[in-house]
């Protein structure tokens, strides 16, 4: 396995990429079981700096197989997305853990399609928002998520071991009631009325 990977030289890559241009389709599949695991691990190992143990992968794909997707080109796995979702402060929240597309296949919308699929499933499962972290220097990922509607909610100081800051990106799904944002206080500066009944009135009016 190892040596195969290393022997993929420039020419092979070119061929692959050209093959893609000639119109062979990219196939997207949801995580389908044990045979997909090594494919995912290989991709992520190659492209991301953080080493993950096999347990980390299992943690994600066994608990949320429906949120992980793989992209194939001519039977070869060229991209993947790994996610989770769970309770966070009384809301259901999706989280994108890993996203990778092989270098020769980048810039063709594969990553966009992969995350879009995951996000759809999260939305349909009742998530209120989706989050992830990305290095502040990862222009490609930041642009990609920006176009999908993610905002940079926070900056995380020296989040990664290499000392680089991260952004926490967030995507909030529309909620019907969100259009009348509920405040815990319905009191303004200068209005000297503070009464619990007033507060009750306002909330019950909705």
């Amino acid at each position: 396995m190892e040596s195969n990977k290393k022997n993929t030289n420039q020419e092979d890559k070119k061929e692959e990429a050209e093959g893609l241009q000639e119109g062979s389709e990219i196939e997207y599949v949801s995580y389908g079981g044990e045979h997909h695991l090594p494919l995912i691990m290989n991709l992520v190992d190659q492209e991301l700096s953080e080493p993950y143990s096999i347990f980390t992968y299992r943690y994600f794909v066994y608990l949320w197989p429906q949120l992980s997707f793989l992209a194939f080109h001519d039977g070869k796995c060229v991209g993947t997305v790994v996610c989770k979702m769970g309770e966070h402060r009384n809301t259901l929240r999706g989280y994108i853990a890993m996203l990778v597309v092989l270098k020769p296949y980048r810039g063709r919308g594969i990553a966009t399609e992969l995350v879009t699929r995951s996000i759809r499933v999260m939305m349909d499962s009742g998530c209120e928002e989706v989050t992830l972290e990305a290095e502040v220097t990862n222009k490609g990922a930041l642009a990609l998520y920006g176009r999908l509607g993610f905002i940079r909610a926070k900056r995380l100081f020296r989040y990664y071991l290499n000392g680089v800051d991260a952004f926490r990106l967030k995507l909030l799904f529309p909620r019907p009631e969100a259009h009348q944002h509920q405040s815990i206080m319905k009191l303004g500066f200068g209005t000297y009325e503070l009464g619990s009944d007033q507060q009750n009135e306002e909330t019950s009016a909705e």
Partner: peptide, 11 residues
């Protein structure tokens, strides 16, 4: 974006 609107960004 495909998933939300400016209103959500504002919120």
């Amino acid at each position: 974006g495909p998933f939300n609107s400016e209103h959500e960004r504002f919120l």
